[in-house]
Lab assay of single mutants.
Amino acid sequence: TTYYDVLGVKPNATQEELKKAYRKLALKYHPDKNPNEGEKFKQISQAYEVLSDAKKRELYDKGGE
């Protein structure tokens, strides 16, 4: 599973699309609303952290993490 899959976006997604997808999923899986989905929330946050940063995203796209 790639970070793009976690957020449900395509690899060519814009920053705005990433932000929108992250917010939607973060609300859905937030531990306050969904106590059993803490791990999913962490995955979503990690994916967004990497993909929202241009340098980290470039490194990730080249095969790094």
Rank of each mutant, 00 (worst) to 15 (best):
K28P: 03
H30W: 05
R57T: 02
K19I: 12
V9P: 00
R57A: 02
Q46G: 05
Q43N: 06
Y22M: 05
K24A: 11
Y22A: 02
D53G: 03
V9S: 02
E17I: 05
G64F: 15
A13T: 05
L18H: 00
Y3I: 04
F41L: 08
E16C: 09
L18Y: 01
L59I: 12
A54C: 10
Y22C: 03
G8S: 04
Y3L: 12
E17K: 04
E16Q: 12
K20N: 14
L27G: 10
E58M: 08
I44A: 04
G64V: 15
L25D: 01
K40S: 06
K28S: 08
K42V: 08
K24G: 08
K33C: 14
Y3S: 01
L18G: 00
P35I: 07
K33R: 14
E58W: 06
E65Y: 15
L18P: 00
L25P: 00
N36I: 09
V9H: 00
F41Q: 02
I44F: 03
A26N: 05
D32K: 10
P35C: 07
E58H: 09
D5W: 05
E37F: 15
Q43D: 07
Q46C: 10
D61E: 04
K62D: 06
Y29T: 04
G64Y: 15
E65R: 07
K56N: 08
K56W: 07
L25W: 03
D61Y: 02
P11E: 09
K40P: 03
S45K: 14
R57M: 03
E37C: 14
K62A: 11
T2L: 09
I44E: 01
Q46H: 14
K56F: 06
E39I: 08
E16V: 07
P31L: 05
K42H: 11
A26M: 15
Q46I: 15
T1K: 13
A47W: 01
L27M: 13
Y22H: 04
E16Y: 08
D5S: 07
N34M: 08
K62G: 08
K24P: 02
A21T: 04
E37I: 06
N36Q: 13
H30I: 05
K20A: 15
Q15H: 10
G63K: 10
N34S: 09
E65M: 15
Y60S: 03
G38L: 15
T14F: 01
A13Y: 04
Y22N: 00
K20D: 14
L59P: 03
E37N: 14
L27H: 09
Y4E: 01
Q15N: 10
L51N: 00
Y4N: 01
F41H: 04
K28D: 09
K24S: 12
L51F: 01
K24Q: 12
S52N: 06
E65L: 13
N36K: 10
N36H: 12
Q43K: 09
K33A: 12
T1D: 08
N36V: 10
A26S: 11
L59N: 12
Y48L: 03
E39C: 10
P35W: 06
G63R: 09
L51Y: 00
K20M: 13
N12V: 04
E17T: 05
D53R: 03
A13K: 00
I44K: 00
H30E: 04
T14A: 04
P35M: 06
N12I: 06
A21N: 04
E39N: 08
K20T: 10
A21E: 04
V50W: 06
D61C: 04
V6F: 06
P35D: 07
T1C: 15
P11Q: 09
Y60F: 04
D61N: 05
D53F: 02
K55D: 08
A21Q: 05
K10M: 12
A26G: 04
E65A: 14
P31R: 05
Q43Y: 08
T14I: 03
A21W: 02
E58L: 08
G64S: 12
G38N: 12
K19V: 13
K24L: 13
L25M: 05
K28F: 09
K56E: 08
Q15G: 08
K62S: 12
G8Y: 03
G8W: 03
G38K: 13
G64W: 15
L18A: 01
R23S: 13
K55G: 10
I44W: 02
E16G: 08
A54V: 13
K19H: 13
E17W: 03
L59C: 11
Y29Q: 02
A21L: 02
P31H: 06
L51C: 01
A26E: 13
A26H: 09
K19C: 13
Y3A: 04
Y22K: 01
I44L: 07
P31A: 09
E17Y: 03
A21P: 00
K10T: 12
A26C: 14
Y60K: 03
T14H: 03
L25E: 03
E49P: 01
E58Y: 09
A13S: 07
Y48C: 03
L25F: 04
Q15K: 08
K24F: 11
K55V: 15
E49C: 14
E37G: 14
G64H: 13
G64C: 15
P31W: 05
K20W: 11
Y60A: 03
E49R: 09
K42P: 03
A21D: 01
Y4C: 01
K19M: 14
K56P: 02
A21Y: 02
K28R: 09
R23M: 15
I44P: 00
G8K: 05
G38H: 14
K42I: 11
P35A: 07
A26K: 10
L59W: 13
E17A: 06
R57S: 03
F41R: 04
D53M: 03
E17P: 00
I44T: 02
A21G: 02
Q46L: 14
Q43M: 11
L59Q: 13
E49L: 11
K33N: 15
E65T: 14
E17G: 04
H30A: 09
T14K: 05
A54E: 12
E49W: 11
Q15I: 11
R57L: 03
D32E: 11
Q46N: 10
D53K: 04
H30Q: 07
S45Y: 11
L18D: 00
Q15W: 10
Y22F: 13
H30K: 06
T14P: 04
A26Y: 15
L18E: 00
N12E: 09
K55L: 09
P35T: 08
S45M: 14
T1L: 14
T2G: 06
E39Y: 08
L25A: 05
D32R: 09
Y29F: 08
R23I: 15
T2W: 08
V9K: 01
A21I: 04
D32F: 07
L18S: 00
E16S: 10
I44C: 02
A47H: 01
K40V: 09
K56V: 05
T1A: 12
Y48N: 02
A21C: 04
G38W: 15
S52F: 07
K42T: 10
G63N: 13
E17R: 03
K20H: 10
Y4G: 01
D5R: 06
E65K: 11
G8F: 05
K33D: 08
D32S: 14
T1W: 13
Y3K: 02
E16R: 09
A47L: 01
A47R: 00
P35Q: 08
Y4L: 01
E39A: 10
D5F: 05
D61K: 02
E37W: 12
D5L: 05
P31I: 05
P31Q: 07
V6K: 04
Q46K: 14
D5Q: 06
N36L: 13
L51E: 00
Y4R: 01
L59T: 08
Y29A: 02
P31C: 07
V50C: 09
T14G: 04
L7Y: 00
T1E: 11
G38A: 15
D32N: 12
K42N: 08
G63I: 12
D53P: 01
Q43V: 10
E17D: 11
Y48Q: 01
E65H: 12
L59G: 06
A13C: 14
P35V: 08
T14Q: 03
K20L: 14
T14Y: 01
K55A: 14
E16M: 08
E65Q: 12
A47E: 01
H30G: 13
L18V: 11
E39S: 07
Y48T: 01
A26I: 10
P31E: 07
K33W: 10
P35N: 09
E17F: 02
A26R: 11
K20S: 14
S45W: 13
A26F: 14
F41E: 02
E58K: 07
E58D: 13
L25G: 02
A54K: 12
A47P: 00
L59M: 13
A47Y: 04
V6Q: 05
K33V: 15
N34I: 05
K62W: 06
F41P: 01
S52T: 06
K33P: 04
N34G: 08
A47C: 02
H30L: 06
E39V: 08
E39Q: 08
K33Q: 12
G64P: 11
H30V: 05
Y60G: 03
H30S: 11
A54M: 13
N36R: 09
L27N: 13
K10P: 12
G8P: 00
L7T: 00
D5Y: 04
N12P: 02
V50Q: 04
T2D: 11
Y4S: 01
N36P: 07
A26V: 14
K28V: 09
E16W: 09
L27F: 10
K19T: 14
V9D: 00
Q46A: 09
L51W: 00
